[in-house]
């Protein structure tokens, strides 16, 4: 699969896209163009699959106004890596209902893929994955964020995610009281 990332090669990629109908060109909110294989896009993203099936794909770059270039770059990167690493049959069978489907452990490369991202990039990617309806990518990123919360106290979580504590002391004490009966048993 031919991979061309945007960033200054926009013109070139568009030409490639026109010549080769196997790819889809995506346009980020700041106007950068990215190219991803049609097959991978349709397989991984329900939104893109719908667009391809409905013929609303623009050859000059499908506008994705919600997604910044950095996040889109990660999305495209993920699609390409995914296409290279997993046989498609395994994926098609795994598309079960979102809420009850047993969660699948991220694979080694997926772990590495999200580990290198900064917090901001990770959250951008989550939003992009949500917007594009990419369940697997959402799984991987949500897993990463829940791992970041693991074993941390509320104070540490606030520090890690830079969240402001908007409780008063009394309120905190009150919630702690409620938590005193929090469920524990063997």
């Amino acid at each position: 699969m031919e991979v061309d990332k945007g960033k200054g090669e926009a013109e070139e990629t568009r030409k490639v896209a026109e010549a080769d109908r196997d790819t889809v060109t995506l346009k980020s909110s700041d106007g950068k163009l990215f190219e991803v294989s049609k097959e991978a896009a349709a397989r991984l993203s329900t939104v893109l699959a719908g667009m391809i099936a409905g013929g609303s794909i623009d050859d000059n770059g499908t506008d994705l106004k919600q997604i910044g270039s950095e996040a889109l770059e990660n999305v495209v990167d993920y699609c390409n890596k995914h296409a290279n690493s997993i046989p498609s049959a395994a994926l098609i069978s795994s598309s079960i209902s979102f809420n009850t489907a047993p969660f699948k452990e991220p694979e080694e490369w997926e772990r590495k893929f999200v580990d290198r991202l900064s917090h901001d990039a990770l959250f951008d990617l989550v939003e992009a994955a949500n917007f594009l309806g990419m369940e697997r990518l959402l799984d991987v990123t949500c897993h990463k964020i829940s791992e970041m919360m693991k074993g941390k106290s509320p104070d540490q979580i606030r520090e890690v995610f830079n969240i402001k504590n908007d409780y008063t002391k009394e309120e905190l004490e009150e919630i702690r009281q409620e938590l005193a009966w929090a469920f524990y048993d063997d």
Binding site: H143, N165, I175, L179
Partner: peptide, 16 residues
Amino acid sequence: RRLPPSPRQRLRLVCR
């Protein structure tokens, strides 16, 4: 959803 119920309870302390 990926967290056990009792730590999830403790997360209520983070913010409103």
